[in-house]
Design a protein around this nucleic acid. Structure first.
Lengths: 127, 127
DNA sequence: ATAATAATACAACGATATTAGAACTATTGC
DNA sequence: GCAATAGTTCTAATATCGTTGTATTATTAT
């Protein structure tokens, strides 16, 4: 993951509207939602929503396909997972004991996030 | 996780400098780094770094403790985990089949992230 | 073809964030 | 006490972002 891409993604989520849009699309999953419906659900002017959708799509956070005169947007979950991996890439410089202590503090669930596979765990231990 | 807190965190990471600071602190883990050292490593004026550190700390992304005349900053990993949980809270409206397909697409490792526990998984399935 | 709909593109204003320089507070050591 | 160090705070200038209104493109239906 490139640093510029990462900052773009964070920018894409650093407003209440965009966060609402993203969570709406995450909830909808593979079904996606068309632009007008998003504007309607969030009660926002269409051009404003379009502006934000464009920014989020350019950042790679969303995907869009044309369906006739509709534009269907979907959350790009793998990109989010890559971003998370980027953030924690060198976590604790590979000291797994420290990581373990953090894991115990997690309060909520982690939604659709994948479990750590055994090989990726061992790979992290000794870089 | 409150929406306002979430947007503050994303704002806190939506610039290259802040992302650099955060990743530096994640790498350092529980040891943390003092303000001046961060400024030196990233080759930035101290007041600018202080400005960003303050914003990130107020967002809850960092913690800080005083050590004599030094201020030691640390990444607040549990907050990041909560944020991730917030993002994926209603992922796919609880349809675990869709989630499974996303999981297979993950390219990188996930650093210090905790594995999904069995109970949180089953709780997600039927909300 | 023409009108209606879905969505985006553009321009402009106001608000906000970032940066740098100077001044300020607090701690350490002589 | 005095100077040096670490860090923050304040102010002002600049840059950037978000919103709104209007215009434009593309698709569908009559």
């Amino acid at each position: 993951m490139d640093k510029m891409v990462a900052t773009q993604i964070f920018e894409s989520l650093s407003s209440g509207i965009r966060l609402d849009i993203y969570r709406l699309l995450v909830k909808e999953g593979t079904g996606g939602i068309v632009s007008g419906q998003i504007a309607h659900i969030l009660d926002l002017p269409a051009n404003n929503v379009s502006f934000h959708l464009k920014a989020m799509t350019q950042a790679g956070l969303l995907t869009v396909v044309q369906e006739g005169r509709f534009q269907r947007y979907r959350a790009n979950i793998p990109v989010m997972l890559d971003l998370i991996a980027y953030l924690t890439e060198e976590c604790c410089s590979g000291n797994t004991d420290e990581c373990a202590s953090f894991r115990e503090e997690v309060s909520g669930h982690l939604g659709c996030l994948p479990p750590l596979s055994a090989e990726s765990q061992s790979k992290r231990s000794f870089p």
